[in-house]
Each structure stands twice: as structure tokens, then as C-alpha cells.
Nucleic acid binder design. Structure first.
Lengths: 142, 142
DNA sequence: GCCAAGCACTAAGATATCTAAGCAAATTCG
DNA sequence: CGAATTTGCTTAGATATCTTAGTGCTTGGC
């Protein structure tokens, strides 16, 4: 009996997801680290780095790294906010907006492959269970 | 409506698990990266690096890095196998064996916190669902 | 026995992530 | 108003992880 802990299962599943994503994104010169920020920006442009960090679930230094790569690939522009000069708002370039149509199907594909054989109900259960674990860890992890 | 993908949920949960583990392990000078290898070695000593990689779910270069840290902390010894000089077998030091009693409760604690409020049945569902996703991704991720 | 193929590990270099510490702009408050 | 605090971002340095490309040992076919 393996009797693996929840943490191990989650970590291992994460590594497999990241690998599947990386293999499919690499021909577009996008890495998984950049991917989550792109998704957040496709949903809403002009977010600050702090707000992006919150939505993607990383610390701010991680966000700085990822945005540096996205800027190097000409996917984003960083615009200092004139109302509050501490803040930098992140906007997509035309190139990045145009790539949404190519890239989103990749994410859907990976998720379809990953959840193949799961019913709608099972998928909702998974979301609920992971959501419960996340809120447990958020409140006591510090 | 957030409508987060399975991949995002798993990644975010993983980051929270890793953070909770890191906070609790740091006073013992053990990092999460080393943790999974320690667990595998507490279960069975003398594994080769390849076998360790397979059990922990990382590539071999990652295993090399993690074992380097464990060796620096005097937690393992690397012994060249005399029967097959390509292979290196990994053994725990007395120090590492002695720490099992202190460290295992930390893992149990993190898992208890993470799964608080989940019934036994729900925990089994989670394991089954993640297991299904893992096998889906293993077979098609490459 | 020789050599080609395969196997176990390592090196190099990139990305992903964290914590701790710092800087500069904005806000609060005496 | 001016100092202290807070806020948003950055830097520095460590760990974690991957892919690609070696190095050296073993084995199997001839």
C-alpha cells in the first residue's frame, strides 16, 4: 500500500501538469511560469503587479521574474501609473492579445486530457476538495 | 465566477503545501525539496539515484541537486555499488535516522491541517481523483 | 575478446519559486 | 508641515525543477 500523503499527491500531479503544459507551449516560446500571468491578463488587463501576484498565487518577486520574461518576449508593457507612481500597471501587447486564440485551446486540451474519464460531478468534487484544502492551508500555513 | 482550471487549482494547492512544509521544517534545516527524498529513504534505504527519482517523481538531475543538499547536511552517504560501478546507493546517516521521529509528525500535522473537515470518504475520493489525473497525464504528457 | 548499444549518473544552463532586505512614493498623524 | 508608517516594487541569494548534452560502466552480438 503506497499510503501517499495528500501533499505528495498534489505535488506529483502538479509536476505532471507543468510538464504537459511545457511540452505544448514550448513551440510558442511560452513557459508555464509565464502562462498563469498571461491567463490573468487575458481576463483583465492593466492589473498592478501586486494584484497579479494575488490572482496568480505567487509572491511579488516571482511575479517580477515572470514579467521580465514576458517583457523580453514582447508580450507585455509595464506602464507606471501616473496617479500613484509606486504602482506599475501591466498591459498586453497586440502580439499577446493575438496569441490568445492559439494558446487557450492548449490549456483546454491539457485539462481535457487530465480529466478524461471524470464525470462533471467528479470534477466539481475535485474543485471543492482542493478548494477546502487551500482555504485550510491559507489560514494556518503562515 | 472564477472557473479556474484543474491545473491552476493543483498548482496553487501545491504552493500552499510547500509553504506550510517549509515553515515547519526550516528550524530543522530541511527544505521541502529534500523532504520527499528523506521520506523515500526512511521507507527503504540503499536505493539507487534512478530508483529514488522514480519514487519521488523528479528527473535525475533534480535528484542530484537534492542529494547534494542532503549530503551537505550530513543526512546521507553515497556509496558506489561494487557489483555495478555505474550505480550509487544512498544510505541515511545515524543523524537522519534519528530525525525521523521529530520530522514525521510535522508531515502528519501538515496533512491533518490541510484535510481538516474532510471525511474519510472525501479523502479517498481526492486520492482517487488525483490518481486518475496522474495516470491520464503520465500516459499522454510526453 | 571487441565494440556498439544501453544504462546510471553528472554538468551546464534556463526557468520557477521562495525569504529577507532595500528603495521610493503615498499616507497618516502629531 | 514633517516624521513615521505603509505600500508597491525590486534586488540578492538560495532552493527546486526542467531539458540537453556529456562521461564512464556494463552488456550483448559477432
Amino acid at each position: 500500500m503506497p499510503c501517499r500523503s495528500a501533499g505528495y499527491l498534489v505535488r506529483d500531479t502538479h509536476l505532471l501538469f507543468a510538464k504537459a503544459l511545457r511540452n505544448r507551449l514550448q513551440e510558442h516560446q511560452i513557459t508555464p511560469g509565464q502562462w498563469y500571468f498571461l491567463r490573468a491578463l487575458w481576463e483583465e488587463e492593466g492589473l498592478s503587479q501586486r494584484e497579479l501576484s494575488r490572482r496568480v498565487g505567487t509572491t511579488e518577486p516571482t511575479t517580477v521574474s515572470a514579467l521580465r520574461l514576458l517583457a523580453r518576449n514582447a508580450m507585455i508593457e509595464r506602464v507606471r501609473n501616473p496617479k500613484d507612481r509606486r504602482t506599475i500597471n501591466i498591459f498586453l501587447t497586440d502580439k499577446a492579445r493575438a496569441m490568445k486564440g492559439d494558446l487557450m485551446p492548449i490549456a483546454l486540451d491539457v485539462n481535457d486530457i487530465a480529466t478524461a474519464g471524470l464525470s462533471e460531478l467528479e470534477f466539481e468534487q475535485l474543485r471543492a476538495l482542493l478548494g477546502k484544502i487551500r482555504s485550510n492551508l491559507v489560514n494556518t500555513g503562515l
